[in-house]
């Protein structure tokens, strides 16, 4: 029946006289008037975006290319060279990259595991969910206080490890400090990522899972070949959010240790914050632009991976 209709349609179409359809001439005046009116409507938003995003960004680029904010002289990429060769900046880059490389994958994996566990029908499921979400509600200053007490030289953690016969560790003033901030980061952010994954898990089509089960796929195969595919966009989102959050760890470190922490905790934002305090806007701007370029590259790569990996399930 369908075939018949389609043939009929085709025949009808083929019988139609081939006449040229004349397009009306473009009215330039009307076109401009339309654009003007539209422009007026979007002007407030555009002005806002320009004022709060584009213009400041332009100012930062300008500052990064001159030697002084008072009497600016164009110096080209000298500021970039100076920042890129500064040992403190390089230390900050190394620490930030290391922290992100450890904390972000851990955050992603642990929150996914938590989401999958809480997806099962276990007792006290909603209480556990609340438990993992509650760190998000605690103010940062309070968290910092708790961490200071826990990881103080005479704090609870040292008391515990000394019970096992180990020597106390100066957590904040040694290379072990990265453990402190990774734990702090995970504790603060796992809940949020977990909720995102739980929502994503709930949105996986049940029939696909049933098909996999019927096809005798084991749980690992189901997870890696079916669930991961459907979770790919969420994984991308969680990774990006965790990456951004990993840069924000500066706030907690700053409250724990102020402007110049032990070198292993010295992050990019420390460098930029200190430069700001010293009115060195040139180094600050150059550093910020380099950092944002790196971020753009990383996020671009993530998007590419996601597109490749999750293509088939997104149609």
């Amino acid at each position: 029946m369908d075939k018949k209709i389609s043939l009929t349609k085709a025949k009808t179409h083929s019988e139609e006289p081939k006449t040229k359809v004349k397009r009306p001439k473009r009215n330039l005046k009307r076109f401009l008037k339309l654009w003007f009116k539209s422009g007026l409507f979007i002007a407030p938003s555009f002005l806002g975006v320009m004022t709060f995003f584009l213009v400041p960004f332009g100012v930062i680029i300008f500052y990064s290319l001159v030697d002084s904010p008072i009497d600016p002289i164009f110096v080209g990429i000298e500021n970039y060279k100076s920042v890129a060769t500064n040992e403190a900046f390089l230390t900050a880059v190394k620490n930030t990259a290391l922290f992100s490389a450890i904390a972000v994958p851990l955050a992603m994996v642990l929150s996914l595991i938590l989401a999958m566990v809480l997806d099962l029908n276990i007792p006290f499921r909603s209480q556990f969910r609340t438990f993992f979400l509650s760190p998000m509600m605690v103010p940062v200053a309070s968290i910092v206080l708790i961490w200071q007490v826990l990881f103080h030289n005479n704090g609870a953690v040292n008391d515990l490890i000394m019970k096992f016969g180990l020597e106390r560790i100066d957590w904040m003033k040694s290379d072990y400090s990265i453990i402190v901030i990774v734990v702090l980061f995970l504790w603060k952010n796992l809940g949020y990522n977990m909720i995102l994954f739980m929502a994503a898990l709930a949105s996986i089509p049940k029939d696909m899972l049933e098909v996999a089960r019927l096809e005798s796929a084991n749980p690992f195969q189901t997870f890696f070949y079916v669930k991961i595919r459907y979770l790919s966009s969420t994984i991308l989102f969680v990774t990006i959010m965790s990456l951004i959050s990993s840069f924000k760890i500066f706030r907690e470190i700053y409250l724990l240790t102020t402007d110049y922490p032990y070198p292993s905790m010295y992050m990019l934002q420390h460098y930029m914050n200190n430069k700001f305090k010293r009115l060195d806007y040139q180094a600050l701007s150059a550093g910020a632009i380099m950092m944002s370029l790196v971020m753009i590259v990383i996020i671009g790569l993530l998007f590419l991976i996601e597109e490749r990996f999750g293509k088939d399930v997104e149609g």
Binding site: E87, F89, T91, P263
Partner: peptide, 19 residues
């Protein structure tokens, strides 16, 4: 010794940042 070492680390960082 520990105090001197930490002072050295932190001030070294400070001086390098402001060089």
């Amino acid at each position: 010794d520990e105090a001197a070492k930490v002072i050295q680390s932190r001030l070294n960082l400070y001086l390098k940042e402001n060089k």
